[in-house]
Structure formats: structure tokens, C-alpha cells
Design a protein around this nucleic acid. Structure first.
Lengths: 222, 222
DNA sequence: ACTTTAAACGGACCACGGTCCGCTTGACCC
DNA sequence: GGGTCAAGCGGACCGTGGTCCGTTTAAAGT
């Protein structure tokens, strides 16, 4: 309900979208408006994020308490909640920084992931990239997911979704692109991958193959 | 970690599987061993489940507290936790009763869902059946999901998965049946469906179409 | 510099999930 | 019936996420 990293208190009216801009009904995630914090607030924000990732190296994500983060950053507990809304919000903020690298790779990086490769290739490359990224950060990702609905409001994940849907459109895959994008993303979901590799002993490589198989089956052309 | 509806305390060694039984590495879910509670425990169990579903009609699942359930059933709070392990366990137990109907439908019900229909038809019928079931109980289901890994340990969901994988094998769908079953199930996941229908205004009927499209694309034959 | 105001702060406070442990009781055997 | 003992019970207790509200302070205007 309360946005991540956004004050839970009433906001000024959100800046209206450009009237001339081509409005798809899919909200475009890249435009990120850092709501320009007050100087002390900004300072405390980075203080908190630093403290959190420092603590994180010393213990599992599950043991990270809001109070300990506040104490380690030398601020009050209320400040943490004011800044990040809730525990998941803090975890998501930590993740966000790392996610930026992945975003750069598929938005503006080199082929086959970036824009200079044909769409079908980008589609094939996307799954493995996500798989690697999620494997690296699975602990944090899993810890950040308490509300199953929350995902759909996380900007980074919406961006992935829109990007995938775009590639599906470009490759003329038949069927609803948004729905298929959800399905494809679900096939490399962190929780699923973690389950399959740790509980069922599945080879990560096998998962990449499965992604390619799925993309081919869905019928990417062009 | 602690099994749902199973004492968290150390157990006697689990009954060994029949030595001759054909062992697939997929644990078969249908065999359910109700660990035969003591008389008072069984009585309290139903008392608690009754109390919970009674309270549930008077408020949202989010407002159901363990203490209130215990009080409404006239037992101590510790008893609730002993029986169901944790909050999710209680919610899952409530769900389980309703899930039994769905299970009966696809395990032994009439065609096209039941065993008297050809596998491809059962495959097509499965998605809509799950969609309906999850729509009816979405509030409880969403409330029961706090740990994203928990799903893979829920017997009812493992049963769905194995059933789907079996149908995929019977219809000679190319690719890893277990993986494809996960993907198919994800495409009708409660959280996703709830998001699409409430936030994005998607027609439930459209989701059924998408299921059929997906199954066809995957290439079910026979 | 002085005023004003909304944002930010902090820590006391609350509710709920989950644990612990001493006591009780049902089930099984003799 | 009597004895044994693990299963069950209950509620005090604890830690943590999240809220509240009186106080402080950055920033923009005059």
C-alpha cells in the first residue's frame, strides 16, 4: 500500500504526465522521480543503507532487525520506518542498488542483451541474465517477499515485465504479450529456482535450457 | 521448516516407504497420513478450525489473530501453535478442507477434468478449474503466503504439480514436464490473477483463453 | 537576521506471532 | 484398577514490526 522509499504521509499532487506523451496503459518504470529529500533526511538514508548492508554481511537477512539497523546508523527507529515504510521497503531499497546493474545491461548494454541485438536474441538472453542476477541475491530477494502482491508494485520488477512484453511484441509472438511476459518471468522466479536447485538438485544450466525451450515454443520469429 | 499440522516436537522415525513400491523421485502427495491425534487434541483441532472459520466470516483474513482464535475456541494460545505450527499453518489447514473438493474433481470426478477424459482435454480443463477455485478463496490463499518457499512444501500444491506433470507426460509435451508444470501453474497463480483482475481490469475469461493458448503452444498431442 | 512551516526525528508505546516450561491427561500395558 | 509416560495443554513471557506524537530543524520567504 505505502510506496517503497516514499513518505507514507500525504504527498503533493504527483506531477502530471506529459499531455502529448504516448500513453500506454502500462506505466513506464524507467522514469524515476527521487522525491528530493531534505538534506538531513538524505544523509540518514544513506547512513541507514550503509549500516544495513554492513550488518547484512555479518548475519543472514532473516536476522536483520529494524532496530539494529537504526542503532547501527545512529538514528531513531522511527526514522527507518519513515524513510522505507516497512521492512520489505528497506530490503527492496538495498536490492534496488544492485538491480540497477541488471537494468543497465538490458536497457543500454552490449548485445545480446542490449538494444543492438535483434529482439529474438535479446529475448533468449534475458532469462539467463535474470537467473544469474537472482542467484546472486536470492537471500535478500526471498527475505523481501512477505506480501505476495507487493511484487507487482515494485518498479524494478515492472520494468522487467514491460521490457519483456516489448520484446515479445517485437518478435511477433502470438498471444497477450503482458500475460506471456508474466509467465516467462514466473518460470525464472527466485523462489522457484531456489526450490528446484536446493531441494530437487536441479542443474542451473538445465534452467537456462528450459528458458530457451520455452521461448522457442512460444514462437518468437523475426 | 516445521511441517504444517504436524507437531514441531521430535517425531518417531517416519514409517518407511514400501520397499517394492515404484519410487518416483516426485513424492506422491495423495497418500495422507493423518498422524492420529489423541482424543482431546482432535477435539480441540476441530474446535479451533470451526472457531477460525466462524471468525473469518466476520472480518478479513488479515485481522484474524491467533489469540482470538484460541479464545473463541476456548483453548490456550499454545494449543493453536502446537497443532498448526504457525499462522500460515492454520490458514493452510482451513484451505485444505476446501481444496479437497478440487482434488476430488480432477482425481476421480467426471470428464473433462476427471480420469475418463483424454489427457489433452484434462490438461485444458485443469487451468480453468484452478482459476475458479483460487478466485473463490483468494483472500485466504493470499493471507497464507508469507514465506515464498512454503508453497513448495504444501501437499495440496505438490499434488497439483504432480498431476499436471503427469498430464504433460501423457500428452507427449516436449521438454521437462516438472518445469513446464511449474510454469503452467504460475500462469494461474492466485497473486498474479488477483493483480491482473483488480489492478489491471483484466477479464477472467481472458485468462482462461490464455491458458488454452499456452497449452496449445506447448504442443499437447494425443 | 527573523519568522514561518512542513518535513524529519526519536523513542515510548502497542499488538501480535512465536516460545517455554511446569502441569494435566488420555492411551496403552499389566 | 493401577501405573507409566509421551502427548497435550495453557498462559506468562519475549522479541520484533509498526504506530504515535511532542520536539527539533532544514529551507524558503521577507
Amino acid at each position: 500500500m505505502t510506496g517503497p522509499d516514499i513518505p507514507p504521509t500525504p504527498r503533493l499532487p504527483a506531477p502530471l504526465p506529459e499531455p502529448g506523451a504516448a500513453r500506454t496503459n502500462l506505466p513506464l518504470a524507467p522514469i524515476d522521480e527521487p522525491p528530493q529529500l531534505r538534506a538531513d533526511a538524505a544523509r540518514n538514508r544513506t547512513l541507514l543503507l550503509d549500516a544495513a548492508s554492513r550488518l547484512l554481511t555479518g548475519c543472514g537477512a532473516a536476522d536483520l532487525t529494524m532496530e539494529s539497523v537504526a542503532a547501527a546508523a545512529g538514528v531513531g527507529k522511527g526514522t527507518v520506518f519513515r524513510r522505507f515504510g516497512d521492512r520489505a521497503g528497506l530490503l527492496l531499497a538495498l536490492l534496488d542498488h544492485r538491480e540497477k546493474q541488471l537494468q543497465a545491461a538490458f536497457l543500454s548494454g552490449p548485445p545480446p542483451l542490449g538494444p543492438d541485438a535483434p529482439a529474438a536474441e535479446r529475448l533468449h538472453a534475458f532469462g539467463p541474465a535474470v537467473l544469474r542476477h537472482e542467484r546472486d541475491h536470492h537471500a535478500l530477494i526471498l527475505a523481501s517477499r512477505t506480501d505476495p502482491l507487493r511484487n507487482y508494485a515494485v518498479p524494478a520488477l515492472r520494468l522487467r515485465l514491460n521490457h519483456l512484453a516489448m520484446l515479445l511484441r517485437q518478435t511477433k509472438v502470438p498471444g497477450d504479450p503482458e500475460l506471456l511476459a508474466h509467465t516467462l518471468l514466473a518460470s525464472v522466479d527466485t523462489a522457484l529456482v531456489h526450490h528446484l536447485t536446493t531441494e530437487r538438485g536441479m542443474d542451473p544450466e538445465h534452467l537456462e535450457e528450459a528458458w530457451h525451450h520455452l521461448v522457442n515454443r512460444l514462437g518468437a520469429t523475426v
